[in-house]
Design a binder for these strands. Structure first.
Length: 472
RNA sequence: GCCCCCAUCGUCCAGCGGCCUAGGACGCCUCCCUUUCAAGGAGGUAACACGGGUUCGAAUCCCGUUGGGGGUGCCA
């Protein structure tokens, strides 16, 4: 029997949670849930200069929103300084590190003189400097041999030690660097599987060397997930791309749709069923099946997946999820309830819900210009159709105000207006255009008969009359 | 520059030596259904980067080339 899996998501609070880190977090969570292991959180806030503590809240909130719940209290590296100091002391005692007082500038100058190659040149490696203020501790990387590991996603990966520079482990101010804290904590927290983005591949050999030097156990497995890229095939970036998880939430994407879509990037279920409940993804997900090549974050497909998940919602649930997106409040909620099923199957995001029913809420709904041109200006027999519709609907009593009789009335109006085919039957698809624009201001929307039924007799007739007047 | 990784339709995924005249999904296009729009149905478009091997046989294995990406901080 193998030990239970322990994985972690280790964000650094220097930005909001974005879809790329969400992708990595999800992979960790899926593995933990599938194996019955633990999903842990570690906040990597060792860089005092760049940390924005309030961003931790955003990250936690977004993970919760996604449903990526964690199992133990999050670990904050900023509160574990002593542990890193002890670890560093051990490295010093063992001769694994040396002290260095080179400034970045000095290193650069020397590199330039030596032909412009980047990286630390080992200047202080044999100077025997004592520890002191402003002096950083650098890891003495081996000059020979290779360091590698078996990656669950990429197979065998290894680096020549000679290509590894003497990296800083402890800053001049005594604070630990990412690698020290990261490698130490993974061991300390008993992490068995290190699952993270491909951008960490290059630092993994240093991580391994450090773990060895510390006398700690290496994780049993690594998995470096494919990067998420934009249309230019570049790593998704906060500055250029649409990556904020909070933004997607605000734009009406469902967390289960986001999780579903993210899982599909770099991986696919064996049975080919792409859109499905998260629980089923948990069952099927295997790191061994994850692709190593970068994946394009396709918002069009995300929208499709989102629409599918919206349609899969129970009506009440759809109503409840839509509520935060209704800026018109309770009246909009009431209006939506009356056309819930019709709207639910027509939207791709929850942000699209309100525009579909706002004609039921607003006294004087805005008229969309393109719709007006299409259905009114360019429509045939528009005045006739409006007149006939008004007459036919006026003849309908309040208790006959149902979708069925409204349809019959509009059909009869079409015949009255001469909008018929060769057999004399009403052409509803042409005839309904002006009516729809008159009552809703748009040429697209929920089914007309139902819309008119919900709008009510008075409002329907007054909007038809107003439009008739405007047509002249 | 150096190091590492990647390479199947526009995009995502399947394929793990013969079942591939390469399959599914999104997108796009056509048609059907139809009160608009969706949804649904039926079609269509479109890919194994290139060159060498290995093998009876390669999209699948190996090498190289090319292309793309990532890393190269006293950031994480």
């Amino acid at each position: 029997m193998t030990d239970p899996v322990r994985v972690r998501f280790a964000p650094s609070p220097t930005g909001y949670l974005h879809v790329g880190s969400g992708h990595s977090a999800l992979a960790n969570w899926l593995v933990a849930r599938r194996t019955g292991g633990s999903f842990l959180l570690r906040i990597e806030d060792t860089d005092v200069e760049r940390n924005r503590p309030e961003l931790v809240d955003n990250v936690l909130e977004m993970l919760e929103w996604l449903g990526l719940t964690w199992d133990e209290e999050p670990v904050y590296q900023s509160r574990r300084g002593e542990l890193y100091a002890d670890a560093a002391a051990k490295l010093v005692a063992g001769g694994a590190v040396y002290f260095c007082d080179c400034t970045g500038e000095a290193v650069q100058t020397r590199n330039k003189a030596a032909g412009g190659k980047p990286g630390y040149d080992g200047f202080c490696r044999d100077r025997g400097l004592e520890p002191g203020p402003g002096r950083a501790a650098r890891f003495r990387t081996p000059r020979e041999g290779r360091t590698g590991w078996t990656d669950l996603v990429r197979g065998e990966v290894s680096f020549a030690n000679a290509d590894l520079e003497d990296f800083v482990v402890l800053r001049g101010n005594g604070n630990p660097m990412f690698l020290l804290a990261n490698a130490f904590d993974d061991a300390d927290m008993g992490i068995t599987h290190v699952i993270r983005g491909e951008d960490h591949v290059n630092s993994t050999p240093k991580y391994l060397l450090l773990v060895d030097a510390l006398g700690l156990a290496r994780p049993t497995a690594f998995a470096h997930m494919p990067l998420l890229v934009n249309e230019q095939r570049k790593k998704l970036s906060k500055r250029r791309d649409d990556v904020s998880m909070a933004d997607y939430r605000a734009r009406g994407y469902l967390p289960e749709a986001m999780v579903n879509y993210l899982a599909l990037l770099g991986w696919g279920p064996a049975d080919g069923v792409e859109v499905r409940p998260v629980a089923e993804i948990v069952e099927q997900y295997r790191l061994e099946d994850v692709n190593a090549s970068p994946a394009f974050f396709d918002q069009k497909k995300l929208s499709f997946v989102n629409a599918e998940h919206i349609r899969a919602l129970a009506t009440d649930e759809f109503l409840a999820r839509s509520r935060p997106f209704l800026t018109r409040g309770e009246p909009a909620a009431h209006a939506l309830a009356s056309l819930a099923v019709e709207v639910q199957e027509r939207v791709r995001t929850l942000a699209e819900v309100e525009p579909m029913i706002e004609f039921l809420v607003d006294d004087d709904p805005a008229v969309d210009e393109a719709s007006w041109t299409k259905a009114i200006t360019k429509g045939k027999a528009v005045p006739e159709m409006l007149d006939a519709t008004i007459a036919r609907l006026e003849a309908l009593d309040l208790d006959a105000w149902t979708p069925e009789s409204i349809q019959e009335a509009v059909a009869a109006a079409a015949v009255d207006a001469g909008i018929v085919n060769a057999e004399g039957a009403p052409q509803l698809s042409k005839a309904q255009g002006p009516v729809r624009v008159a009552i809703s201001g748009r040429s697209v929307g929920p089914p007309l008969w139902e819309s008119i039924a919900v709008l009510g007799r008075d409002r329907t007739l007054s909007r038809l009359r107003a439009t008739r007047l405007r047509v002249g």
